[in-house]
Amino acid sequence: MSDMLTAAFLSALISGGILAGMPLLFASLGETISERGGVLNIGLEGMMLMGGYTGFVVTLYSQSHWLGLLAGAGAGLITALLMVVFCVRLGLDQIVVGIAILIAAGGFTSVLQRAQFGTTYPRLDAMSAVEIPLFAKIPVIGPSLFAQPAIVYVGFALVAVLHWVLRSTNMGLNLRAAGEKPEALDAAGVSVTAVRSIAALSAGAFAGLGGAYMSIVGAGIFVPFMTHGAGFIGIVIAMLGRGRALWVVIGSLLFGMSVSLTTALQLVGITVPIDVVNMLPFVAVLVVLVIFARQAYLPAALGLPYKRGIR
């Protein structure tokens, strides 16, 4: 067991955790915003797939990773427009619309992928890592933490920004009011519809970015249904994070590490069946849910459409 703590093992664990954790981070940040605002986004995974596919195609043709990531976020945002129109504006059932988006987006991206790349399977170049001077020289955590593609640093910066927005700005307060007591927000003269629309759209953009990260930075290729439940893990992380951006980071990285644990184990000579690898994050989620069941928190008005004058 002592060789489990070698530098190579830890390094693989941390960098793998970041690789697998970043999409979860983006997705769960998006869901956090959305849930705070009272919109339950079950279709998160569908938005990730749309972002992943679009990001991959744009990167492939423009040869720019950044353009691809941006396009991925845009695709997620456009998909979230459906949520805005159907759920926020018309007040339709968020779960049913979410499931519809999930199914339709999964089928849609799979069809497009097969029609375009069904025989060629093009791959993208890896996104170059940016080393942060000095920090990258620290043993073990240096190369795994401070020599990542720039988007990783952007991701962590987004967490800080979001943390500040949610806690210390009017926008954050409005968002929370829209999720907890929309009547109060309405009475204060702020449009619930507008606040919730922004929440739903940001969630889509974040999810799209997460999907794009998966296909562009993570895999270098888009495969149908490649998110493999990441969107739902993102929802769980958001639930357990109780609307706090910092908790969401910790949760995402821990789940990312549970994915990379098996890869890291292989480095020290322990092979684990692929099905166990695939199963592990979900088992982890369930264990966490069982242990912290009472801690999970959802806003009071989550999932309920707001109509003025109707209690």
């Binding site: 459906l82 159907f86 018309l90 339709l92 059932d93 049913v96 619309v97 499931i99 519809a100 988006i101 999930l102 199914i103 339709a104 987006a105 999964g106 089928g107 849609f108 799979s110 069809v111």
Partner: peptide
């Protein structure tokens, strides 16, 4: 699958 997803979406409408 896509057809079914769209059916669900239009159904809500």
């Amino acid at each position: 699958l896509m057809i079914v997803g769209l059916i669900l979406l239009f159904m809500t409408l």
